[in-house]
């Protein structure tokens, strides 16, 4: 669905390495994400998943290798630079300010202003609420109380707000770190359907999870990391739980 004619993938990492002193956290790792593609990243704790996403999102500088966006090599000095290029990371612990509304969270750090009395700049809360409503509507998520702080919402709804922020600012690649980990089953389903929405909109998603059921429900491909190296890559349609587990633990 919605696959692009572009030949270059949205995001590609080639021979990426990262070591911390003598510890080789990531070693000669390569993968690619195309438009409208969901790639699951699986691996045991300490396999290098977090190092990889931090290298892609600009938190760490890789020691070796390169990152390409639509075929162009890029380097990010800060997460801010990665975000400006359309790579948004949605963290496990949710980067939301609980005391602010959905709109205020979407616009956090780049709030729209308007003028009253012709000179006095004030926060444009109405514009924020309108954008919040539209954005959340695009994710098939409808809220009535747009001025309520996000602490009033459930875990899945808050996840949707975090995704909504990325969508509003036109992120092309979303990296989602365990988006279903802290949620109940119905909420997990909701997040899975959100990821389907993102896919349908032609965005690339890197989906990190321990939950194989979720991975099989939503991904096109799975990339398995083990001790910092790429232990295998499979199309979801051509693999099964057992094979993936074997790749993860090495057997």
């Amino acid at each position: 669905m919605n696959s692009s004619e572009q030949t270059a993938p949205l995001l590609e990492v080639r021979h990426l390495s990262k070591h911390f002193g003598a510890v080789q956290a990531l070693n000669d790792f390569s993968m690619a994400v195309g438009p409208g593609e969901v790639v699951a990243l699986a691996g045991d704790n300490g396999a290098g998943k977090t190092t990889l996403i931090k290298a892609i999102s600009g938190v760490f500088q890789p020691t070796g290798g390169e990152i390409l966006l639509r075929g162009q090599p890029v380097t990010f000095a800060t997460p801010q630079e990665a975000r400006e290029k359309g790579i948004e990371t949605i963290y496990q612990d949710l980067a939301l300010a609980d005391n602010l509304s959905i709109g205020a969270n979407i616009f956090l750090g780049r709030e729209p202003m308007r003028k009253v009395f012709g000179f006095l700049p004030v926060l444009d809360r109405k514009a924020m609420a309108v954008a919040a409503k539209q954005t959340m509507g695009r994710l098939d998520f409808h809220v009535s109380r747009l001025d309520a702080p996000v602490s009033n919402f459930s875990g899945g709804q808050r996840q949707a707000v975090a995704i909504g922020r990325a969508v509003y600012w036109d992120a092309q690649i979303l990296i989602m770190d365990e988006p279903t980990a802290a949620l109940g089953v119905p909420e997990q389903r909701k997040v899975i359907s959100l990821i389907h929405q993102l896919k349908a909109q032609g965005r690339g998603v890197i989906f990190i999870s321990h939950n194989l059921q979720d991975i099989f429900a939503v991904s096109d491909r799975i990339v398995v990391l083990r001790r910092g190296i790429q232990a295998g890559e499979r199309k979801i349609s051509e693999t099964n739980h057992d094979e993936v587990v074997k790749l993860m633990v090495g057997g």
């Binding site: 780049r110 308007r114 109405k126 954005t135 509003y168």
Partner: peptide
Amino acid sequence: MTSTSPTETHV
């Protein structure tokens, strides 16, 4: 709707 200019959205 795509990303709007982050500043001065006049309403």
